[in-house]
Structure formats: structure tokens, C-alpha cells
């Protein structure tokens, strides 16, 4: 080892500040986004932790109480009972599991398919791009609700169908976004630099293109989750989704809507839970967009 090498080795390394770290810093300064994130986390923990909090079971019927009874704080029925004398609040938490799971799973499906599909089409370009994006266009043109009705007619009502139906549709937007990003990044010089260095195509996609499209993708993901939850609620509201004894936010709102006049607390409770969740996810998405793309401010 030469003298120069020793002096080089002895200098402490300076830690860099990545664009992600910068974005995190900006996000944490956004009060609305951070409080939304906290609220959303509480909701998620409450829904998925419900079985461990010593609450009553969602199918526990209390014959002492009337159906669609008002909130009863002494007995711990915070939102009253549903039409079958069950604890509405507990059912809301368990229903949240289904809604949130649908939201996350469908979004993950759309993320994986959409990113790979979009990045490949955008990177390869030409005829491959044309072919792949025409498939997207064709899928786009299928009316979503007919698609769901067809599926339920053929396969019967099942929760998995909801996952498939929503997942199959929501990756289309993702693919379009990622393709657009990929095309603009592909023209950047650092991609050419990688090509000139003999880096393989696969590695260019995974190391150079995907990390640089992640900003808009992350934003879009946070906006897809509430969208999917809403779609699921809508399908369940129409009665084609989750079936008894399971529940989701959609079925609960749908049931509560029928008795709105005699039990307004039911629709207010279930409706606000849905609204708060969607609102906080949208705030998180906005905060992420500002954090990841500071030029827009």
C-alpha cells in the first residue's frame, strides 16, 4: 500500500443525502400529511388488532338489545347494534380488515403488473410498445361494472372475485403512468451512459429506470388504495361483494343506509370511518407528491 492509499483510506467517509432522504424530510414537515399518516396507522392497527383487544366477536348476537339499537356506552356498544343485534363498532373494525385488505392487495397486484408492463413497454418501445399498450386500451374499454356482474354470474359471489376484478382493472393506469415515465427517463443521458458501459438491458430497467419512476408510482399507489376501497364498497353496496356473515365497509354502509331514518348513528359511524380513511390516504398522497416532486410547489 502506498502512502497515498493510506491517507486516502484514513479519511472518514461523508454520508450522502439521497433524494429519498430529502423527500422524507420534506414530507415530515407537512403537518396535514403526517397527521393523516398517524390517523391512518391507528385505523389499520385498530382493524387488524381487533381480535386481540378483548372485544366481543363480530358474530356475537345479544338478544337483550333491540336491533339497530342506539349506542350504549355502559355495555360498550359504541355505535349501537346492527339489524341482527350484533356490535356495530366491532363489525366495523372487522369489516375494515376486508376493505383494507382488498385495497392493499389489489394495489399491490396493480403495482407489480403495472410497473413491469409499463417499464417493459416504455423501454423496448416500437412495435412491442404498441402491442402492449393496445392490450391496455382494450382492457380499458371493458365497462368495469359489467365485468364484475359477468364474473359473479359465471363464478358465483366470492370475495376472491373482487380481488381479481379490481386488480385486473387498476393496473392499467399504473402501466400507463410507468410507461410515460420510462419513456422520459429513457431519453436521459444516464441511461445512455449505462448502455455505453455495457450494462445489460435488464439491469438498466431495474437499476436505472424503475428507481427513477418510483416517485410518481408511490404517489399513485397511495391514491389507488382509497380508490380501490371505494370500488369495493360500491360493489358491496350493490350487493355483489362480500357476503354474510363477513362484512366490509361497503356492506355496512349499505345496511345502515336502509335504516337511516330510525338509526342515523349507524350511517354516521360507518360513513365517517370510510370517509376518514379515504381522506387521510388522499392527504398522504398529496404530501408524498409535494415531497417527491418539489418543483410543483
Amino acid at each position: 500500500m502506498s502512502v497515498a492509499d493510506i491517507t486516502l483510506a484514513s479519511q472518514p467517509e461523508v454520508k450522502g443525502r439521497s433524494l429519498w432522504a430529502d423527500a422524507r424530510h420534506r414530507f415530515l414537515r407537512n403537518k396535514a400529511a403526517v397527521s393523516s399518516l398517524v390517523i391512518f396507522c391507528i385505523i389499520v392497527i385498530a382493524c387488524f388488532g381487533a381480535p386481540y383487544f378483548g372485544l366481543r366477536a363480530p358474530d356475537d348476537i345479544n338478544w337483550e338489545l333491540e336491533s339497530w339499537g342506539p349506542p350504549n356506552l355502559e355495555l360498550g356498544y359504541w355505535l349501537g347494534t346492527d339489524g341482527n343485534n350484533r356490535d356495530l363498532f366491532v363489525r366495523l373494525l372487522y369489516g375494515g380488515q376486508v376493505s383494507l385488505l382488498v385495497g392493499f392487495t389489489a394495489t399491490m397486484v396493480s403495482l407489480v403488473i403495472g410497473v413491469i408492463w409499463g417499464a417493459t413497454a416504455g423501454f423496448l418501445g416500437g412495435r412491442v410498445d404498441g402491442f402492449m399498450m393496445r392490450i391496455v386500451d382494450i382492457l380499458y374499454s371493458i365497462p368495469f361494472i359489467f365485468f364484475v356482474i359477468m364474473l359473479t354470474v359465471v363464478f358465483g359471489r366470492h370475495i376472491t372475485l373482487i380481488y381479481i376484478a379490481i386488480g385486473a382493472v387498476s393496473w392499467l393506469d399504473m402501466a400507463r403512468i410507468v410507461r410515460g415515465q420510462t419513456i422520459s427517463i429513457r431519453r436521459r443521458e444516464f441511461i445512455e451512459a449505462a448502455e455505453a458501459s455495457g450494462v445489460s438491458r435488464w439491469r438498466i430497467i431495474t437499476r436505472h429506470i424503475i428507481p427513477n419512476c418510483l416517485g410518481p408510482v408511490v404517489v399513485y399507489v397511495t391514491l389507488t388504495v382509497p380508490n380501490v376501497i371505494l370500488i369495493e364498497s360500491f360493489i358491496s353496496f350493490l350487493g355483489m361483494g362480500v357476503q354474510e356473515p363477513d362484512s366490509s365497509w361497503g356492506t355496512l354502509v349499505s345496511e345502515a343506509a336502509v335504516v337511516m331514518e330510525i338509526a342515523p348513528w349507524a350511517i354516521i359511524g360507518t360513513g365517517s370511518m370510510l370517509a376518514i380513511t379515504l381522506l387521510s390516504l388522499n392527504f398522504i398522497g398529496d404530501g408524498l407528491r409535494d415531497a417527491l416532486d418539489p418543483r410543483d410547489r
Partner: peptide, 29 residues
């Protein structure tokens, strides 16, 4: 054979550290 570009910042992947950027052609071969 290699290339150096006009816009130095545009030719560097903003998500990679300097070490990763310089090492990439080395690791490829």
C-alpha cells in the same frame, strides 16, 4: 470505449451514490 456527456448532472443517475455510479462499468466487466 466510453463516453462523457455535455450535461454532467443529467448523465448521472440521481438515485445512485457516486461510488455506485463509478463502480457500475467496473462491476459489469
Amino acid at each position: 470505449m466510453q463516453i462523457i456527456f455535455q450535461d454532467p448532472l443529467a448523465s448521472l443517475n440521481p438515485r445512485m451514490t457516486v461510488g455506485q455510479i463509478i463502480a457500475e462499468p467496473l462491476s459489469v466487466f
